[in-house]
Design a protein around this nucleic acid. Structure first.
Length: 664
DNA sequence: CGCTCCCTAAACACTT
DNA sequence: TAAGTGTTTAGGGAGC
């Protein structure tokens, strides 16, 4: 029925311009890529810095204990965050290290030693304290996350801040990695032994009042029994420390100088006072305790002109004595606790990933959730996420997640690639909002698992087209996109291809543009938006989650985004293709949701002020085929970055598979 | 219950 | 002629 008019519309629509935002797109993609790789824009953290971090932790531990002893009970849940305002112009996460330095604590080296020698630092205590500190950091991260989520609605300056916060998060990750390396090295050296039975404490949401700076101070006091030297090193120390601690908060500013020498996997302190080892390492300028002209002994940071002087300093100041021993012990425990914590976090991560992967299958009450994922691809996906994880997830469903993710019944193709069409799946998902996390994850997931994506053909087609540099694709290219992005579509080509064609013809939102070489398909965003409204209306949960800020064509990017928009979020506009960073993906998604909300409210009245889908979107008359049959790389790469899945490469498989057979 | 969406299947015409 | 591309029609499930 709509056909007739549709046909005409289509031809007309083709006259529109082609919102080629390719340039932007690429740029942003590269940005995203960088971020997604965990690369910190302007800052690097060296092992030395890591060492500092650990030192601080140790200090905190020690001090904490002292306090505990002195005042019986500690107000464990101190006022949450040290840094109240995150939205300030200042990098939200500044750790007042330098400030702390000026306010010496009252812990003498003797005290510290005492503590250490008395074994006051039980693993549990250490862990608690460490966790508290970590919690603080996590809080900071969360805050920054929250900030980033709001970014879209922020003024430019604030967005910068948010960006910095992102950088901070990445640094944290880096630090964790480094710490891990460090721990491993320690283990190798036999300096660290892990007690298996050690209880692990749950990460506490609220951080103790202690801040890194204080720890730093503590360390200082404990270690610096040499006023003169301390004075000399003070400058440095404060600088270095700020580096290690604060760097994150002000990446751009601080621009940490990580000395290359110090990049020795953080085999710091533990390496200590062994002369043999010293001489051993003498010939290598990369002494773990020496870097950047500074002694890297925990809390020391004495300036040493050259390696020789450093050795001298090391032997004289950090000889085998009680103090050094105590410090070493602290360090060991710190490391140990960190390791435990790391293990725990890893476990948690596994569980999370497992849950996310399986969850989609849960709702279906499928006999074998795991099997949903094709045996072939599963291995891949699963292995990435978690080794053995998948199986036990059923139990994990947590309140927040499970309900939300419930919708998309994943149809397994595994055994059913012949079975093919499973209808209800779609209906299920329609009303189920897909969380950003889901999407992000699912993207990879669908690429590898032969699970039917919970998106309509229309949305997928649209996404495919929008992701292409020219915002237009030939039918064949669309096919390719499907097979690349979804393992599921590497099967039953006849079926889904027919569906694709059907959708292209049926929906007015898809405009066919005649080309010299043939025809390409473009998206008429307006039309597309029009048909969205109804679906979403029934999505209370979605609406609930939606916050505010209308986003104009937020920068959602990934293929998923489109799908997302399709399924639950109407507002998606191409104009938004210009996209921010991966880090903002989540926030972007949220924005998307917001948009959807509004859209819903306005019920398709594509009146969103900020966006102008048509302009940005509409295909211009195409005179020449933008993409070669095999030019899929173009759109593909975009997708890849967009998906923030750096490892997109690994889904090469799609190429060898059916794709070829389908595509001549 | 009717409407609308969406999916799948398939027939048919046209083009390459 | 075969294959690919587009268009239509039909039937069915599902949510509102």
């Amino acid at each position: 029925m709509m056909q007739e008019s549709g046909t005409e519309t289509k031809s007309n629509g083709s006259a529109i311009q082609n919102g080629a935002s390719g340039g932007n797109h690429l740029l942003e993609c590269s940005l995203r890529e960088a971020r997604s790789n965990g690369e910190t824009p302007s800052v690097d953290i060296g092992a030395a810095d890591l060492a500092h971090l650990q030192q601080q932790q140790a200090l905190q531990v020690a001090r904490q204990l002292l306090l505990q002893q002195q005042q019986q009970q500690q107000q464990q849940q101190v006022s949450g965050l040290k840094s109240p305002k995150r939205n300030d112009k200042q990098p939200a996460l500044q750790v007042p290290v330098s400030v702390a330095m000026m306010t010496p604590q009252v812990i003498t080296p003797q005290q510290m030693q005492q503590i250490l020698q008395q074994q006051v630092l039980t693993p549990q205590q250490l862990q608690v304290l460490l966790q508290q500190q970590q919690a603080l950091m996590l809080q900071q991260v969360n805050v920054s996350l929250a900030a980033s989520q709001l970014r879209l609605g922020m003024p430019p300056q604030q967005q910068q801040v948010a960006t910095q916060q992102l950088a901070f998060q990445q640094q944290l990750l880096q630090m964790q990695q480094l710490q891990q390396q460090h721990l491993l090295s320690l283990q190798r050296q036999g300096l660290l032994t892990i007690q298996p039975g050690q209880p692990t404490l749950p990460l506490q949401p609220l951080a103790q009042g202690m801040i890194p700076a204080e720890l730093q101070q503590l360390w200082k006091e404990v270690t610096s029994s040499h006023p003169a030297e301390e004075a000399a090193s003070n400058n440095h120390s404060s600088l270095d420390l700020s580096t290690s601690c604060v760097s994150s908060s002000a990446p751009s500013k601080t621009s940490l100088l990580i000395n290359p020498h110090a990049s020795t996997n953080g085999q710091l302190s533990v390496h200590t006072p062994k002369r043999e080892s010293l001489s051993h390492e003498e010939h290598s300028h990369s002494h773990p305790l020496y870097g950047h002209g500074v002694c890297k002994w925990p809390g020391c940071e004495a300036v040493c002109e050259d390696f020789q002087s450093f050795l001298k300093h090391l032997n004289s100041e950090h000889a085998l004595d009680d103090r050094s021993t105590a410090q070493c012990r602290v360090q060991m425990q710190v490391v140990q606790q960190l390791e435990l914590q790391l293990a725990k976090d890893k476990e948690r991560l596994q569980a999370m990933m497992t849950h996310l992967h399986v969850k989609s299958t849960e709702p279906k009450a499928t006999p074998q959730p795991l099997n949903l994922v094709s045996s072939v691809t599963l291995s891949k996906t699963a292995s990435e996420a978690s080794p053995q994880s998948l199986p036990h997830t059923p139990t994990t469903p947590t309140a927040p997640i499970t309900p939300v993710t419930q919708g998309p019944s994943v149809i397994t193709t595994t055994s059913m690639h012949n079975v093919g069409p499973i209808r209800r799946r779609y209906s299920d998902k329609y009303n189920v909002p897909i969380s950003s996390a889901d999407i992000a994850q699912n993207q990879e997931f669908y690429k590898n698992a032969e699970v039917r994506p919970p998106f309509t053909y229309a949305s997928l087609i649209r996404q495919a087209i929008l992701e292409s540099p020219e915002k237009q694709l030939t039918l064949n290219e669309i096919y390719n996109w499907f097979t690349r992005m979804f393992a599921y579509f590497r099967r039953n080509a006849a079926t889904w291809k027919n569906a694709v064609r059907h959708n292209l013809s049926l929906h007015k939102c898809f405009v066919r543009v005649e080309n010299v070489k043939g025809a390409v398909w473009t998206v008429d965003e307006l039309e597309f938006q029009k048909r969205r409204p109804q679906k979403i209306s029934g999505n209370p949960s979605l609406i609930k989650n939606i916050q505010t800020s209308h986003t104009y064509c937020t920068p959602l990017n990934a293929a998923l985004q489109a799908s997302m928009a399709e399924n639950s979020i109407p507002l998606y506009t191409t104009a938004s293709m210009g996209n921010p960073t991966l880090g903002n993906l989540a926030s972007a998604m949220r924005e998307e949701l917001n948009g959807a909300m509004e859209h819903t409210n306005s019920n398709g009245s594509d009146s969103s002020p900020g966006r102008s889908p048509m302009q940005a979107m509409h295909p211009v008359h195409v005179k020449e085929e933008p993409l070669d049959p095999d030019e899929n790389e173009g759109p593909l790469s975009l997708v890849t970055t967009a998906n923030h899945s750096p490892d997109f490469d690994h889904d090469r498989d799609y190429e060898d598979e059916p794709v070829n057979e389908d595509i001549e």
